[in-house]
Write a protein that binds this DNA or RNA. Structure first.
Lengths: 190, 190
DNA sequence: CGAAAATTTGACATGACTCAACTGGAGTGG
DNA sequence: CCACTCCAGTTGAGTCATGTCAAATTTTCG
C-alpha cells in the first residue's frame, strides 16, 4: 500500500524514502462498503482520497431529487471535491462508493503541514492538478461535443473499466443521457 | 505592468520584490492586434500568457471548418493551451485576440528555470491551477446541465463583460448553441 | 423465493438544429 | 461621402435527436 502510493508519487517527482514515509504516515487508511459515503453533499470536504482499490462516483442531487454523476474514480486515482476542498465551502457533490473501496485519506490540515516540510509536494500537486485539468478538458472536447451514441461508445472504448464495473444507468447519468435513451442506443448497436 | 503582475501574484503567495523582479524579467511583453493569433492550432504551445489588457478566445476548428470556442480570457487572466503546454504536444486549439490585447508571456523553458530558483512559484501555479480547475467544473455544472436559454442568461449575468465585448455568434459558439437559435432565444425575452 | 432495482419497450412531445433567404449596419475604397 | 460589399444577426419552414411518461420485463441479491 505504501508501495502503491510511492510508485504513484514517483511517477511525477522523485521523493526520498523518508519523504514518502512522512506523507504515508500523515495519511489514514479507510474502507468503505458499497453505497457508503466518502463525502456528503453540503458538508465541507476536508480530505483528498487516494484510491487503493475500488470504484466511487461523485454526484450532485438536484431539486427533483435526480442524481447527477459528474465523475467516477477507480484504483490509483485521487479524488476529492476540489471546489469544496480548496475554498472550504459546502460541497455541491456527494462522493459514494459503488464497489467496496479502500483509500488512503489526507486531510487538508495535514497536507498544508506537509507542504511546508516537503516543498516538492507542491510540485507534485501542481502537476497532478494540471493533469486533472487536462483530463476534464478532454472529457469536454471528446465527449460533450458529440451526440449521445458517440459519447457512449467513446467512453466505453476510452475507459472500458467503466462499462464493465459501473451500472448502465450511472453511465447514462455521467454522459447526460436518459437511461431509456441509452438503452435504445445499445439496442441499435450501430 | 510590473505592478499588475505583482498584485496578481501576491493575491496567492507572498513574494519578495527580488522574486517578482526575477519573474517579471523572464517575461516578455507582446501586443496583438484584432484577429492576431497568440497560438495556432497544431503548433506546440510554449507559453503561458498573462493578459494585461484585452480579450482573447480559444477555439478549435473541426472537420467542417466550424470554429468551436471553448474559452474566453480577459484582463488579468492567464491563458494557455494547457494540454499542449503541459505535454508539449500539438495544440487542438488556436488562441486569437478578439480585441487589441497586450500580454506578458512566459515560456515553458523559463518557467522551469524559475521553478528551481523560486520554489514558492510552484505553490503559486499549484493554486491558480486548482482555481482554474474549479472554474471549469463550475462552468460544467452551472451552464452545461441547463437548456440553451438558461445557459445564455446564466452567462451574461455571471460575466457581463462577455456579453458586452464578445460578438453574439461567438457567445453562441461558446455556449454550444447555433447563432440562429440564440437569436430566437433573445427575441422571446420572456 | 420474492421484492426491489435495473433495464427495456413504445407512444408521444419538444428543444434545438439545418438550410435558405432576408435585413441592417459597418467598414472600405474610389 | 457615397456606393458597395461583407458580415452579423434575424426569420421561418421543416426535421430529428433526445426527452418524458408509463408500463412491461429482467436481473440482482437479501
Amino acid at each position: 500500500m505504501r508501495e502503491k502510493l510511492k510508485s504513484y508519487i514517483n511517477r511525477y517527482v522523485k521523493m526520498e524514502p523518508y519523504e514518502i514515509d512522512l506523507i504515508f504516515s500523515s495519511m489514514s487508511f479507510k474502507r468503505y462498503k458499497r453505497k457508503e459515503f466518502l463525502l456528503k453533499q453540503d458538508d465541507v470536504c476536508e480530505e483528498r482520497f487516494f484510491i487503493i482499490e475500488g470504484l466511487v462516483r461523485s454526484f450532485t442531487t438536484d431539486e427533483n431529487a435526480t442524481e447527477n454523476i459528474n465523475l467516477f474514480a477507480i484504483d490509483n486515482w485521487w479524488i476529492t471535491d476540489i471546489e469544496s476542498f480548496v475554498y472550504q465551502i459546502p460541497s455541491n457533490n456527494s462522493i459514494q462508493a459503488i464497489e467496496e473501496t479502500t483509500v488512503l485519506s489526507l486531510s487538508k490540515a495535514d497536507l498544508e503541514i506537509l507542504f511546508t516540510k516537503i516543498p516538492k509536494l507542491e510540485r507534485f500537486f501542481r502537476i497532478i492538478t494540471e493533469h486533472t485539468l487536462v483530463a476534464f478538458l478532454r472529457k469536454d472536447q471528446i465527449y460533450m461535443k458529440k451526440n449521445s451514441k458517440e459519447r457512449y461508445y467513446g467512453l466505453i472504448k476510452g475507459i472500458p473499466a467503466f462499462a464493465q464495473r459501473v451500472p448502465q444507468y450511472m453511465i447514462a447519468s455521467y454522459l447526460d443521457i436518459t437511461p431509456e435513451y441509452l438503452s435504445e442506443i445499445r439496442k441499435n448497436k450501430n
